[in-house]
Write a protein that binds this DNA or RNA. Structure first.
Length: 365
DNA sequence: ATGTCC
């Protein structure tokens, strides 16, 4: 295999051949210097769990529609021993959707388009989840990001909703952007300006989702601890030259601590990436990646378990949802093993583990 | 992924 391509995996982590083929195809596009598949690599329209370094050109289609998608972690200020699980579930379940909590004051201040989508989680793998710290592996790092074992935290995974979608669609129609945009061209400048606003939208979206949930549960605090984008393009100076890192479902390794999310039935991890990971396109896994495609999840799970146990498996968690299909499509079994993903990255000297978190309540649409 | 597709 070409040394332009790297796949991070051990014998334990299985990667479908289709995803590897997609990784090779994208890496062979003009101007791509490096293509990296992380342990959660899986197939999509373009490979997910993959990063690419380019020079002189960018490819919007690698990023796809959800420009700016990422994860934010917020402090609830609620002490673990004061957290009444049943009461919080009732509060969230009784809302009939977090959209009922007004964010008018915030919306008045913003000039972003698709305002009506701000503060909404969206579908697919997006969620908000209350978590408790399970194990601390590095007290010093945990302190440095102001996290505390006795506090309950909120993890929000969402993106730019219809706004990012509209940007991608416009570029496919107007610029045939599958062919890439040359640095400095009008199309490039326009895309990067839109991309920047989509990042702003997605970040604000995560903050407003957190505001709504924290308000709903009567949280005392609303402090953002970490926020990282795992779908986007960032400029990076490498050897005094301008390069572009394309991340599709991968978190940055050069912005400090990152949350690596498990599925709703497994732990999540706070990790600290090591610096200068050029060989890994300055990226780490953002989560545990799909093992099963959405199609067929329901049948597989119904063959494995009773209906009741589909909802209540593995760790103690509680799921609040509107659409029944998420129970199957986002089941922990449909995802790769997060511990293997973490272990693979530790073995490659990409990260050190700071802490693990257990899911308490998962909120989905 | 998406007020999508049925």
């Amino acid at each position: 295999m070409d040394n332009k391509i790297k796949i991070v995996k051990s014998n334990k982590s299985w990667i479908e051949s289709n995803a590897v083929e997609q990784l090779i195809k994208v890496t062979n596009l003009e101007g791509v210097l490096k293509g990296v598949g992380l342990p959660d690599l899986h197939a999509g329209k373009t490979p997910a769990g993959a990063s690419f370094i380019t020079k002189d050109i960018i490819y919007p289609h690698i990023i796809g529609n959800d420009i700016g998608c990422g994860m934010g972690i917020f402090s609830t200020g609620i002490k673990k021993n004061k957290f009444k699980l049943d009461k919080i579930i009732k509060k969230l379940d009784g809302l009939n959707g977090i959209e009922n909590i007004s964010i008018e004051d915030f919306l008045e201040k913003t000039h972003l388009p698709f305002k009506e989508k701000l503060g909404t989680i969206g579908g697919g793998n997006h969620f908000a989840e209350l978590q408790e710290i399970d194990e601390v592996y590095d007290n010093e790092e945990l302190d440095s990001i102001s996290m505390n074992k006795s506090i309950i935290y909120l993890l929000v995974h969402s993106g730019s909703r219809s706004y990012g979608e509209s940007i991608l669609r416009k570029f496919i129609e107007d610029y045939s952007c599958q062919d890439g945009l040359y640095i400095g061209s009008d199309a490039f400048n326009k895309y990067m300006a839109d991309h920047e606003r989509a990042l702003e939208f997605a970040k604000l979206n995560r903050e407003l989702i957190a505001y709504r949930i924290l308000k709903a549960i009567g949280a005392k605090d609303n402090q953002k601890i970490l926020d990282s984008v795992h779908n986007g393009i960032s400029k990076k100076e490498i050897d005094s030259q301008e390069h572009y890192i394309h991340r599709k479902g991968t978190a940055p390794s050069d912005e400090g601590c990152v949350i690596v999310a498990g599925s709703r039935g497994t732990k999540s991890y706070i990790v600290k990436p090591y610096e200068n990971l050029y060989d890994y396109a300055f990226s780490i896994s953002h989560g545990s990646g799909r093992k099963w495609s959405r199609f067929g999840c329901k049948e597989k799970l119904e063959n494995m378990y009773s209906k009741k146990s589909v909802r209540q498996n593995k760790l103690v968690y509680n799921l609040i949802y509107k659409d029944k299909s998420v129970v199957y499509e986002e089941a922990p079994e449909a995802y790769k093993n997060i511990e293997n993903v973490i272990e693979d990255m530790v073995n490659e000297n990409m990260i050190k583990v700071v802490a693990s978190l257990n899911p308490l309540i998962t909120y989905k649409v």
